[in-house]
Design a protein around this nucleic acid. Sequence first.
DNA 1: ACCTGAACACCGTTCAAGT
DNA 2: ACCTGAACACCGTTCAAGT
Lengths: 201, 201
Amino acid sequence: LSDRRANYHHGDLARALVDASLELLALEGPEAFTLRAAAKRAGVNHRAVYRHFQDKRALLAKVAEGGYRMLAADMDRATSTGGTSRDRLLALAEAYLRFARREPARFIVMFGRRLNEDGREQALEEAIREALRVLARELDAMSSAQTEPRRRDAGITLWASVHGLSALVVARRVPLADRHVHAYVRTVMGPVVDGIMRALA
Amino acid sequence: LSDRRANYHHGDLARALVDASLELLALEGPEAFTLRAAAKRAGVNHRAVYRHFQDKRALLAKVAEGGYRMLAADMDRATSTGGTSRDRLLALAEAYLRFARREPARFIVMFGRRLNEDGREQALEEAIREALRVLARELDAMSSAQTEPRRRDAGITLWASVHGLSALVVARRVPLADRHVHAYVRTVMGPVVDGIMRALA
DNA sequence: ACCTGAACACCGTTCAAGT
DNA sequence: ACCTGAACACCGTTCAAGT
């Protein structure tokens, strides 16, 4: 408290608050997350948050935005190793599931409560589109001969399946040990990928 | 308040509180749900809730339990009309999605925050199993020649896909007008069902 | 038995003030 | 500019008391 930098962030406070929020979410889970606890962890009065974010929702929107960018990067990396279309779609699904398992609290924030009802969070929307673009790109590369609406439907099939699997695993409705993730994705998502490829063939 | 029945429920208060909670969830959404507001809507002091439920979580567990029973009944009804295996699996998926759209707040309660961490809510667990049994029954009827583990994997594929689709629709990440639900389920879930049937063939 | 009043330690948000 | 203190209207939960 005597250290000026400890409670005076010179513009980095926004980032410090996001970092503190992530630590809090990882340590205590999404239920325990409060604006006041995040501020305390960043070393400032809870009122200081309003200097940088409109409200609690806006702070969580930034947390979610970073998550979508990570997810996009993970899926991009997973699909850039080559291999068949089938291999790449399964690798993309595996990256999605691994992200959800690595950051369960952030995953819940990203897909839980609606953070952009009023459409103010443009950066968040762009991050979401960025993630979905990686998914769409793989389907486009695989089936450029097909019409756009059919490829979009296939994208929703793939997204829904991998998202549902991740949500059920994160909620522990479906048990899954770390070392089985690779094989499990192929067992559970294999039929979906095959069905999609056949529909687009 | 002068009417004795208005604030003295003679043992029906538990049910009255669940009903009030459902109204509140339907009207205001899961964010706005509070123990105090549910009690107020039922016409009693908020402390009266603790006479019938251990805590807020236990009240929500009852809300979720009723939801799983409805979901099980809906899926059961949808699959009892006969038709091919493919027709029945698609009808089951449609029932799941329609349930989620009809009761979005309850759907979020059912699959959001973990309501049974300590394993106290046996009735809730049984209701969940009841719903999953309908799903498993359809896959068993379709592929009795296959081994049990493979049918269970297929069950997870189907559940993950239809659950993910429902979650994305409820969160309005995927737009869907009421009158398009029937065709949409066949477009999006068709490839999944075909992939599953081929995997179990 | 069943319900309530008062209290506790929280929460997000607003207003006016301090450096 | 940036942060804080005090206050407001909430929240879930506990304790002791009322009918």
